[in-house]
Structures are given as structure tokens and as C-alpha cells.
Design a protein around this nucleic acid. Structure first.
Lengths: 351, 351
DNA sequence: ATGAAAGCGCTAACAC
DNA sequence: GTGTTAGCGCTTTCAT
């Protein structure tokens, strides 16, 4: 009972013209008479003709599909990035094929291969935490497949564009904000140092202290392996029991910060009067906890849009057999310090 | 400097066999001698051959791509669903192409057309709130494209499978839980009634009250149009000022519930001693607010997996020219009541 | 056990 | 202004 899909040939037969004519008419090719163009378009409309983009892809050697690989889609930041990617891609006539690496190197390799098999026109990737070796991506580049990385980027891949967030500046601003607010014993709960993001936040922390002549206290610097709320809770509990306990805690991410808040409140201390708390990421929950959490907002949506436009630029360049070398770019996006109650002693917030 | 993609013909030439032989060898076709098979596979491996799935798609008339349309990807529930979809799809050898309708009917129509143009093998869709008419989907079904809807489903589309959440039961359990806990003046902040989900929650609320002989109080039933935290806050503020104010608030979603909590605390009332609060959805923030919010968890990941396997079943059926009619199914998934501090007066929670 | 050839739907170079 | 033809990379029927 179901209709077969309509092809150019169907339209051609019906109108007694060649399928070449139909193809050109639908594209408003000036060679075709206005009358024919109209007849073709009318029939196409009537029969609900939709070009088979698989056939177009095979013929034109471009699929108009962008491949995306992210560590984990159920994540506010990454889903925002994807949203930005889709907006930019659709606006430029591309569709998006998404893969989750689940932070696993092996899955990432599989995904890259699958996307290549699907002959996507380019790949947008944020590396899995596990990924140390990027030969799988180099191989794709050798086959002429453009790659743009974002967030967890491929630092050691030459000849590719990337988009990152200025974690250093974001973290530096946090520490300056705390110092300005009068906090001088600032602890930092940092993340695993292989994703360079955590490393940058830690470096900024150290630099900001130094710039303000605050001596660093090794006891105040604690690593989180799992980056969970529970870990933030436990570490903070220990920090509180130190003889010279910190009066501020800067956590590598909001979830850890929330764990810290629980520990502080449980100990009968006040936030921010006794101890201030700052997170990183600005998840939805940050504005909802009590007190509302000061944190660093990362422009995920913008990151997705920018990465996509870099990729599409590169694709256009590849199709343009231009003589000059392509100008790969690295874009660094600014974060935004979201000052909320967890670091501001008076209850009056600037609006 | 970049390598051209390797084709079957390349392998064939190199080995002095036909591309038909290569194609069969790679698929372990028994006709081909073991020796040839091995030679072919070795070379394919060596040259890093990857089948061009666009060409395969054109030839076999199936793309091995599933299209997904959701209202909004930056959303815990929907991103969980997508995660489930990807897992099930990849396990069955399918890739996933995702579109966001942004809750707009016009975008949804565009997306459906684009997915059809991409010749996806099937569509998974959760309707936009705006969507009242589903002719765009019926058209696709007429072209033989299978469609499975989930969450915001197409109730009035015959001959299609769908996966929904038992909102009625989920909400009913909430009210029973509140009544058991001794609350008898229960307010309900419901959502817009066109997505049937809100309607079901409201109906369950009314039914549960009736079943427990609690008279309904129209003043306790208030609609949220925007379903925001702000709206929850404002409505609750008014509820609190009523002469006979409610002692429990059941909000249509966690965000609204959190708005309610803010209003209650601001009024100097205690949660749950003076007023209990319940949400719906179990977003990450629900367990992080204070007190932790009792809410209803929806199995998003599972929903994605189930919808996908229904779709793949249907695709298989279509390819199997079976005689009997396809058995369309409607799956109803159970929710889970997450009892937390916002409804339990003693601080001792069952673990 | 392998090859030749047709064709999926579309586009573009070339012909008239 | 329109038609003819070849071919993108692959699968598959039919030959041998």
C-alpha cells in the first residue's frame, strides 16, 4: 500500500523530458526555459519529490553530513555544544551525525571509523579522557577528512583548528574575586591533570596567589580523582578539621563544590561567612543550591557554533582547490564569572 | 598530499581479481576460496579500506541511519533518551542523525523532510509542543518510512508504535505518598494541558484525592504556562497567603517545585514540616537542593533503547516481505518515586 | 570459484 | 534549451 519514492526519472517520464532537464530545472539552471522550470517544479511539488541525498552524495562526493564525537551527551555542557553545532550546521545546509565515546578510547576509535565509512564531510571531536594517542585522527586527516577539535582538544596534532575555553583566565578570575572579597586561605580541589583543563585551572590558582603575594599552602591543594559530589564532601570534611583551616574552597567543578557545601554546612559553619565556595561550569544546579553557588560559566553553545563554522570553512577550502595553504585557527573563548551568594558576605548582590 | 579513499576496485586491481570477488571476500561469502578471502582481507587491512556506506546505501536502498527529532537536546531527560537511542542503534549497526525541533512545528516539518531526503531507514520522534497536526509524519509513513514516537507521542496516528511514560501512575503514587505521610491539603501546579503528560498528571491527582475521599479544592489547582522556577515561586507565594493554605505542593516538574521551595522558605515556613514539596522528572538538581526534593524519576535512557528496538524491528519487518501485518506496539514505562527529604518529616530516610 | 555487467539516483561534460 | 552519456562505489544476478 505504500508509495515508492519519487525519482528524477519519474518526473522526467511524466513530463516527457530527460532527467537531466529535470535536475537542472529544479536547481533553477538558467539554460532551462522558465516554462519548463515551472512545469517541473509544479510536478515535483505535486508528487512530493525529495532529492535522494544518498545519490547526490555518491555523485558529488560530499555527503553534507558532519560527524560529531563527544565523551558523553547527558551533560549540560556537551549538550549545549551539540546544540550550537546543530544550529550552525543546519544553517549551512549540513546534517549532523552524533557519536558518544563514553570517555572510552576504543569507542572513540570505532566512532571515527564509522564516521569515515559514512563519508561525513568533516569531524568535530572532543577527546575522551582515556585518549592519549591520536593516530586514529591523523589517519583520517591523511584521507583528506578535515577535523576540528573542541574542549578536550588534540594539542599535538598539527594542521588542525581547535576551540578551547580559557580555563586559566576563568580560574584566575575566581581567585582574584576571592582575594578581593577578603579571603586569604584558599583551598583548591583540582581534577585529574591529564585533561589539560584541570591543569590550567590549577596553574591559574597558583599564579593568582603568587601575584597577590599569598604563600601557597600544599595542604590546601587536593586532587579529586573521580570528580564527584561525594569526593568534594569527603575532602572538604578533612580540610575543615585542619588546624589552620581554609576560609575559601575553589572546586574544579560545580558538583565537587556542592559536595564541599554539604560538608561545610554539616560542620555548622556558614557559607560564605566562614568559608566561601566556588565551582566551575555553571550547571543548572548551581543557581538552585543554597546558598546559590558562585561559579564560572563556559560558553558551550558558542563553542559548538564556532567549531562548526571553522570546520565548514575548512571543507569549503578543500573543495575550492585554492593554491595557498589553509589557515588553521585556535579560538580561545572567554568564561564568565557568575558571582552568587556563596562568595558574597552581604546578602545584597549587584544585579 | 592526501590519499584518495580506497575503493573495492583499488583492491581488485592490486590483486588481479574482480571487484565482485573482493566484495564477496570481505563478507566471507562461502563461494570465495579461503585463500582469496585471506589475501583480500589482508590487503584491505593494509590499505585501511573502509566501505563507502553512501554507495552501499544507494545500492541496497537502505542507509543504516536512524533519524531522531526531539524538541530540545539541552535537557536532562531528552539527552538521556538520545543516549539510549544511540546505544541501541549502534549495537544494531545503525548510526543516528539528530535534529532539534526547538519545540517549533515549522522546524519539525523541515527536519522530517530533511531526514527523508537523507533516506534514513526510520524516524524516532518526540513531538514539539506546538505540533497539533501530524500530516507531515503521515506523509512519510505513506512513503514507507517507519516512525516510532516517544514521550510526546502521536496518539492519533494509526499503525505506529510508541513508547510513553506512565505519568498517571507516577503522579498517583506521589499523591498517595503525600496522603500516607499525613498531608491532606495538597496543591497541584500543573503544566499546559495540550501535551497529554501534564493532563495525565492532573487527572491522577484528582483521582487519587477522590479515591482517598479528600475533597478537591479548586483554589489548590493552578496552571503554569511557562513551567519555570519563577512561575513556581510566584504561584506558591500566593498559595501560602491563602486563608486555608495547602500543606503540600505537587509541581508538574522539578524546576517549578524548586521555585515553590524558595517561596516557602522565604515565608519562613519549614519543608516538609509545614509544607511538603514534590516535583516530577528527577533532574540532577533535585538531589542537591535543600531539602533534597522528592520527585518522580522517568526512565529516559530505557525509553530511548526501547523506542529504538521497536523501530529496528519494524525496519526488519519491512525488509522481510512477510505476509502478515506488522504488530505495532505501545509500551508504557513505569516511573519511580524518589522519596527524599522534602516529604519526610523525620530526618531518618529509609535507605 | 570467479567474472561481467547492470543499476541504485543523481550530476555534469559534452553534444546538438 | 534540451538530450545523451558516463560514472560516483557498491551489490548481485547470471554466466562460465
Amino acid at each position: 500500500m505504500k508509495a515508492r519514492q519519487i525519482t528524477l526519472a519519474d518526473l522526467a517520464k511524466e513530463l516527457n523530458v530527460s532527467s537531466a532537464t529535470v535536475s537542472r530545472a529544479l536547481k533553477d539552471h538558467p539554460d532551462i526555459s522558465l516554462e519548463t522550470r515551472q512545469k517541473v517544479k509544479d510536478l515535483a511539488q505535486k508528487l512530493n519529490y525529495r532529492p535522494n541525498s544518498i545519490a547526490q552524495g555518491l555523485r558529488k562526493q560530499e555527503s553534507k553530513i558532519l560527524g560529531v564525537i563527544i565523551p558523553e551527551i547527558v551533560h549540560h555542557f556537551f549538550s549545549s555544544v551539540i546544540s550550537g553545532i546543530m544550529e550552525a550546521a543546519n544553517a549551512a545546509g549540513y546534517r549532523v551525525m552524533i557519536c558518544q565515546s563514553m570517555e572510552m578510547y576504543s569507542k572513540e576509535v570505532e566512532d571515527v571509523e564509522a564516521l569515515f565509512s559514512s563519508r561525513v564531510d568533516g569531524i568535530l571531536i572532543s577527546l575522551a579522557n582515556e585518549t592519549a594517542n591520536i593516530d586514529h585522527l591523523r589517519k583520517m586527516k591523511n584521507y583528506g577528512l578535515p577535523i576540528v577539535s573542541f574542549d578536550k582538544v588534540c594539542y599535538d596534532m598539527k594542521d588542525h583548528s581547535m576551540v578551547i575555553i580559557d580555563d586559566f583566565e576563568g580560574a584566575y578570575n575566581v581567585i582574584e574575586h576571592l582575594i578581593d572579597a577578603g579571603y586569604d586561605r584558599i583551598a583548591h580541589l583540582h581534577g585529574p591533570l591529564n585533561p589539560i583543563t584541570s591543569q590550567n585551572r590549577l596553574n591559574a590558582y597558583l599564579k593568582a596567589l603568587k601575584d597577590h603575594n599569598i604563600p601557597k599552602n600544599e595542604d590546601y591543594i587536593v586532587g579529586c580523582d573521580k570528580v564527584t559530589q561525594q569526593e568534594g564532601y569527603e575532602i572538604t570534611k578533612q580540610l575543615i578539621n585542619m588546624p589552620n583551616r581554609p576560609n575559601a574552597v575553589f572546586a574544579v567543578t560545580d558538583l565537587v563544590a556542592i559536595g564541599a557545601m554539604v560538608a561545610i554546612k554539616e560542620a555548622g559553619l556558614r557559607i560564605p561567612e566562614d568559608i566561601a565556595v566556588v565551582g566551575f561550569s555553571d550547571w543548572a544546579m548551581a543557581s538552585v543550591v543554597e546558598p546559590a553557588l558562585t561559579t564560572v560559566a563556559q560558553p558551550g553553545f558558542e563553542m559548538g557554533k564556532i567549531a562548526t563554522s571553522l570546520l565548514i570553512d575548512e571543507i569549503k577550502y578543500l573543495h575550492s582547490d585554492s593554491e595557498q595553504d589553509y589557515n588553521y585557527q585556535t579560538k580561545i573563548l572567554k568564561t564568565k564569572l557568575m558571582i552568587r551568594e556563596s562568595t558574597v558576605k552581604t546578602s545584597v548582590l549587584a544585579s
